[in-house]
Design a protein around this nucleic acid. Structure first.
Length: 588
RNA sequence: GCCUUCGUAGCUCAGCUGGAUAGAGCAUCGGACUUCUAAUCCGACGGUCACAGGUUCGAAUCCUGUCGAAGGCGCCA
């Protein structure tokens, strides 16, 4: 149990004793550190139900709470705020407990839940561009925060490997090279093991195919036909499509390695293939799905809607399935096969209508029961430094791999300019350069709220000072540097003493606040809560660093206590940054 | 046309689900280095929280309207 929870129990008991609801005793970190360490606002809320002035209630609660040995000052302020301080001994005990905990005080998930985070969404034959950065990084972070507290969380890349784009690729390839065995319906196999196309071929062909679909009705018809036949399982198409998929996955893994995102599941829209027909049958049987204009749809509008929602399209009039069908089948698979209790989609907010329809359809069709939560944790878009949509000179979206190159190059020149990490060998230094570049990118990304359409300004993100990824790495490295120096002088971390300095106390309080930060980040699926905390923790450490000189301290017990605090601070900072998918070098 | 989201310092953004004096970075100005890494620290400057009403003891936060921005709206994904 965290310190805040302990205090909430204490104050909650007191509220209960004066006849108010126990939950009103919830204690939070004070918004006014000049007045208090912790605060409780419950008295104002209790005033209504109890019919008494809030200050009276607060005074009664304060009298009860102040008898507890842990409390050193309990005051009523303003309209009925309860201002709380704990003794320095409590803080020291708290640090001891936290440092001994392998989770550094975080609340364990109880019970752990089975969670699928759907956050990649790359498409076969399409290169990743800057727009893909947000869902990948945010999703990875959200997955990690669930994992760290003990949930069984898995990331599913959910590859876009289905639908018309696949038919378009088949059609354009058949046009270009009709002699390939994949297009010969008489061919008995086996098909060649080596792909006839590279991922670069696909990336070049796809835009051509897409453009032809718009201008050439005959080509569009052919692509639609190929799509339906692929979905029906035509062997040559399936074999070729499997090559499309394989070469795409291979190239994705390279960039994911650089980016530090990892998927437990490499499923895709097409993974639900054999589920689609039975699912549609099931929904027709249940009367949830109906025929409409030659298509099969689910009507999802309810009486409470101001405006009618478009129905979910299960099967179009050509007999083809759509992404709505595969998404619904994917929910079924996640519930039935993976026993998912929570499904979280980190997907562009512009798809919120789709998810609204999808979730309703899943409920109506009995695909997801009440024991399953479905959440669209939508992300905003990325704009250029000018505040307009991010585009290259040619008007295209910049490729993600090029963006990573530029970022790492910029990180390298920042380190060069400041003559940093020069003592490292070439390979270790290049590793640090990569970590700094990625940290810059990711902190720039995650320090914004998930839903914000933010301005991507790599010049700003790679700054070594200010609220940036590299700054946070610097603070962790600085802490490590003290630990290393102490080791050379045989100074070891000792017991935590009661804080003796205001900056030291502030740092301890910051660390004590960590469990609730993670709770809130998980509850709201907001990595920026952790990003904000990381920065505050780093600042608190720098203030402590400035005012408490560890190597120069004469009292050995105090020196050892401070060293223990340095180690603990670094551990929490590293844990926080890991949840933001940011790596910390030993030196830089 | 309808629906959704948004509008906070010169710029980029937070704001813990309604609490105390709205915060941070950058930029600007002024101070602190024979350093445990100054990538830091201390201070100053900067706001009618788009606007107008309403609910409440209390509103950047909730409700209504206006203005402005972005996005979405059955056979694309």
């Amino acid at each position: 149990m965290s310190l805040l929870r302990e205090l909430s129990v204490l104050v909650g008991d007191a509220f209960s004793e004066v006849g108010a609801e126990r939950r009103l005793g919830e204690v939070s970190v004070s918004q006014r550190p000049d007045l208090a360490q912790f605060q409780c606002n419950g008295a104002m809320a209790a005033a209504k139900t109890l019919g008494r002035p809030p200050r009276d209630i607060a005074s009664d609660v304060a009298r009860i709470v102040s008898t507890d040995a842990r409390m050193v000052g309990v005051e009523v302020a303003g309209p009925g705020f309860l201002n709380l301080h704990v003794t320095d001994e409590v803080l020291a005990q708290w640090m001891t407990k936290t440092a001994a905990d392998d989770l550094l005080g975080l609340h364990r998930a109880q019970p752990p839940r089975s969670i699928i985070v759907d956050y990649g969404g790359p498409n076969v034959a399409k290169d990743l561009h800057v727009g893909h950065l947000r869902p990948h990084v945010i999703g990875e972070s959200i997955k990690r925060m669930h994992l760290v507290v003990g949930h069984d969380a898995r990331g599913d890349v959910h590859l876009g490997d289905f639908g018309l784009p696949m038919g378009q690729l088949l059609a354009i390839l058949e046009d270009a090279d009709p002699d390939l065995p994949y297009f010969d319906e008489a061919f008995a196999g086996p098909y060649p093991e080596v792909s006839p196309v590279t991922v670069e071929d696909l990336q070049r062909l796809y835009p051509l195919a897409s453009a032809r679909s718009k201008t050439e009705p005959s080509f569009q018809a052919k692509a639609q036909q190929a799509t339906v036949e692929l979905q029906a399982g035509r062997p040559g198409y399936v074999a070729l499509w499997e090559h499309f998929r394989a070469v795409t996955i291979e190239s994705l893994k390279v960039i994911y390695q650089r980016l530090g995102v990892h998927f437990e599941l490499w499923l895709g829209e097409a993974s639900t293939g054999e589920r689609l027909a039975p699912l549609v049958e099931l929904l027709l049987d249940r009367g949830v799905a109906v025929q409409s204009d030659g298509a099969i749809v689910i009507h999802v509008t309810t009486d409470e809607d101001k405006k009618e929602l478009p129905p979910l399209m299960l099967r179009n009039s050509r007999g083809g399935s759509t992404y709505a069908t595969t998404d619904l089948a994917t929910i079924q698979e996640r519930v039935d096969v993976f026993e998912a209790e929570d499904i979280i989609y980190v997907v562009d907010l512009r798809q919120s209508l789709h998810f609204q329809q999808l979730f309703r359809a899943a409920r109506l069709g009995g695909i997801a029961g009440d024991n399953v939560t479905l959440t669209h944790a939508g992300n905003g878009t990325v704009n250029g430094p000018d505040g307009k949509p991010f585009k290259t000179r040619d008007g295209d979206l910049p490729r993600l791999s090029e963006l990573l190159d530029v970022t790492v190059d910029l990180a390298r020149s920042r380190l060069d300019e400041n003559q940093l990490a020069l003592e490292l060998g070439a390979s270790e230094r290049e590793d640090v350069v990569r970590m700094v570049g990625m940290a810059a990118l990711k902190y720039g990304e995650l320090s914004n709220h998930r839903t914000t359409n933010y301005s991507f300004d790599i010049e700003r993100f790679t700054q070594l000072q200010g609220k940036t990824g590299p700054y946070l790495q610097y603070v962790a490295v600085r802490a490590q540097s003290i630990i290393d120096k102490a080791a050379t002088k045989d100074i070891v971390a000792g017991d935590f003493l009661a804080p003796s300095d205001a900056k030291e106390r502030a740092l301890v309080l910051e660390i004590a606040a960590w469990p609730e930060i993670v709770d809130r980040a998980i509850e709201t699926l907001s990595p920026n809560v952790i990003a904000e905390y990381s920065y505050e923790l780093a600042n608190a450490f720098n203030h402590f660093y400035d005012s408490c000189h560890i190597m120069r301290e004469n009292d050995p017990a105090r020196q050892q206590s401070w060293l223990a605090l340095v180690r603990l601070t670094r551990a929490v900072l590293v844990q926080a940054l890991d949840l933001l998918t940011i790596e910390v070098p030993e030196r830089m």
